[in-house]
Design a protein around this nucleic acid. Structure first.
Lengths: 218, 218
DNA sequence: TTGTAATCAGAACACTGTTATGGAATCCGG
DNA sequence: CCGGATTCCATAACAGTGTTCTGATTACAA
């Protein structure tokens, strides 16, 4: 593996350009010729480095998973695990709102440039649930949550938050039933369903809101 | 408006062909030339009837909303409104599983052939929530749910079910945490969060399961 | 220095949505 | 009944897409 002249990290440069085009101009702007023009090269760059457009999209999806992981690992462990849990949900939503198109490709179940996720990619996505499951385990150990499977709790949390985020990205939630309002009560409902008392759950969820700006990237 | 010879309902024929192609071969198979070949005509048919590919996709989305509406209106009102509520959730999921690609276009927040939903289309989608809100009102009136806004309850139900369905369609739920398992406990959690007692909620959710095959189309 | 491998520019191919053109069949007013 | 007017569609072309082939240019190794 020996590059000719230019950047030795031409790969990440192309991925960055593609991610920027996707974020700024939407999926329609993602074309080999457009990317090549932005990078100042020819369309062949996409093929020598990624084997085609789908390979580039795959790389973008991996970057998307890495960003999500970064958002989740940004929340620190405190002595209130339920508040940590709520903050994980907020971080998950924050990442989706910061990278909406990327999130749609990762979890929207739809194809971009004919690309569809492989089982390995999906496993990559599910791996980020480990953070949530670990926190659920701490909630159970502390006695706030009922004894049970932390992974199952994490899945319930994931399903609910994912549903809210996708409908929010699709502009389906507004006015009296806006995403913020539903999300707040949803977080409390999640904690109560997992076993926490309504009063303490509401308190922890409220506490987690103030930690959002300080413990989440970007 | 007078057709030349063939079908006077050439519009619905083209929509049916497009829907079948989308369901059987995925989004990549949706092309004007392919549709024209299946219909035995030329690509111009798409333009005279729909003004372009996006117009055809819009018509397919409307058809998708109509099918969802048909699924939801299929559940009859019984003297157990909570069971009716659970069955509405099952019907919603049933429609999504029966028309996965169409559902992704409707609610996935992603574009197909450069088509994006208009505000009017979205309103069309939110209108189907009226069925759920009406049922929530009956649950509140019966005393099973706490007094409150039926529409808000419907939104919580929608968000949770949509999240489960999209992750299920994306093949993210399997093995020990499969969609069926999560959905069942999620339904109970929804009812309890709305105010129902855990025992009666579990009973109603279980009762609704047997009604699925008889009260849902297809 | 020579050889080998990697990288990329350019042209070409098959495909896409779309538009312009024109012909054919219906309707509708006389 | 008949003659515009209108509607529909087949054909061909254009600009765009992902992709492949070819060849030239460069970097690194023996």
């Amino acid at each position: 593996m020996s590059p000719r002249r230019s950047d030795p990290n031409a790969r990440s440069t192309l991925v960055d350009i593609a991610a920027r085009l996707l974020a700024e101009e939407g999926p329609e702007a993602l074309s080999t010729r457009r990317i090549a023009a932005e990078a100042g090269s020819s369309t062949m760059a996409v093929y020598t480095h990624f084997g085609g457009m789908q390979g580039l999209v795959r790389e973008m999806v991996h970057e998307g998973f890495a960003r999500l992981q970064r958002y989740l690992t940004g929340v620190t462990e405190t002595d209130d695990p339920v508040a940590d849990m709520a903050l994980l949900g907020r971080a998950y939503r924050g990442n989706a709102l910061a990278n909406p198109d990327l999130y749609a490709v990762m979890f929207g179940g739809f194809s971009l440039a004919g690309f569809t996720l492989s089982d390995e990619d999906r496993q990559h996505g599910r791996y980020t649930l480990a953070n949530v499951a670990r926190c659920a385990g701490r909630c159970i150990a502390s006695g706030r949550f009922e004894p049970g499977d932390p992974e199952l709790v994490a899945h319930h949390m994931w399903v609910a938050t994912h549903g809210l985020v996708t409908l929010e990205l699709g502009d389906y939630l507004f006015e009296p039933y806006d995403a913020e309002r539903i999300f707040e009560s949803q977080l409390v409902n999640m904690m109560v369903s997992a076993g926490d008392k309504p009063e303490t759950a509401a308190r922890s969820v409220a506490d987690s809101r103030t930690r959002l700006e300080t413990e989440v990237p970007e």
